[in-house]
Design a protein around this nucleic acid. Sequence first.
DNA 1: AATTTTGTTAACCAAATGGTTAAACACCGT
DNA 2: ACGGTGTTTAACCATTTGGTTAACAAAATT
Lengths: 199, 199
Amino acid sequence: MQQSTEEKILAAAAKVFMEKGMAGARMQDIADEAGINKALLHYYFRSKEKLFDEIFKEVSGQLLPRLNQIIESDISLFDKIWAFCQEYISRMVENPYLPLFIVEETNKQQGAFLERHLGNKRLRLDKLAQQVQQEVARGTIKPIHPLELFLTIISMCAFPFLGKPLLQHMSGMNDDMFNAMMEARKSEVPKFIINAIKK
Amino acid sequence: MQQSTEEKILAAAAKVFMEKGMAGARMQDIADEAGINKALLHYYFRSKEKLFDEIFKEVSGQLLPRLNQIIESDISLFDKIWAFCQEYISRMVENPYLPLFIVEETNKQQGAFLERHLGNKRLRLDKLAQQVQQEVARGTIKPIHPLELFLTIISMCAFPFLGKPLLQHMSGMNDDMFNAMMEARKSEVPKFIINAIKK
DNA sequence: AATTTTGTTAACCAAATGGTTAAACACCGT
DNA sequence: ACGGTGTTTAACCATTTGGTTAACAAAATT
């Protein structure tokens, strides 16, 4: 095992926190998952809260920069919608627990939490907003508020991972079928959105 | 107070479970919220799990039938999309914790859970699917898999409530602005979807 | 080689938590 | 007034849980 103890803990904590959430995760679960003693957890990370913060920072710090990079890039609006959906869905297929983890904790943790973790690296929508307004003015797309467009994009990309159990229950879909559907949605979603807004 | 003790408990439990989830909710919280002794909780509902089941049943049993009624009704596909979005968003504005509650618990609880609670009253998409296929055949809408369309509709309606804290953090939106936005989305979402699929 | 520092563990602790018990209370028909 | 029935409570219990301690092993430093 090349992994240092700290890395083992972080990997184990990420897994357990993402599966069970902050409230449902047990320090013992994390210790077991990491194959170490519970006391060693507290040796590396003083408290559950500190460890959780570390994981949340790591996890959100991994995703947001990549999305920001796309959102602020110089490509055309339609290309940007494509790139965003592709990247977002690809990341979530790799890590299907992520959307629920983020959504759950941003809803449950107290106000200061979001500021602490995302204060510096929040998504910058300025450029996207500018592009939308340009295209509206130019008459290539129907009038739409940039934030609404963004919300729609992220809704279509993220929600399927949140509603997966319900969806599977309703349709009898297994995991492979779900993944195949999400693979298809990497292009279906941007096509759908562009169809909806283009004149 | 006209409310019986059992009603007080159910109301308190619904509030606490929806705010904190099964794992995060404390029996003492529920007792406090109901203004009663903790032992009285166990007198009415033997265990936390039993109480939780009761709440989940009540909450999901309230929403699904109304949606089913719309989904299985005899109106046209486009009208159905309108009615569904209006109804869904209206219900969620009344009870903004509901989407997170359902999504969270369907993801966290074990497999049998969904079957126990939704086995009988799952959404029936047959009629909607039939309508979509008809419209596709008739050439009024672009080819789309009915389940994908349904997933898109529910994504656009539900996700904003899940991502609300993130959205507010990103855009500086307050609660009133958020509610105004969702009010607008009652018509923006169906318009968007119909724009995307109609030929 | 001796010693200090770092990593690791078993045993322990206090608080929190779900659940129980036995007694008190309130209401009701007799 | 009395007994019975369902309701409510304070006190209690066992287990779980986050966290600590003290002893021990393994490196690292001298």
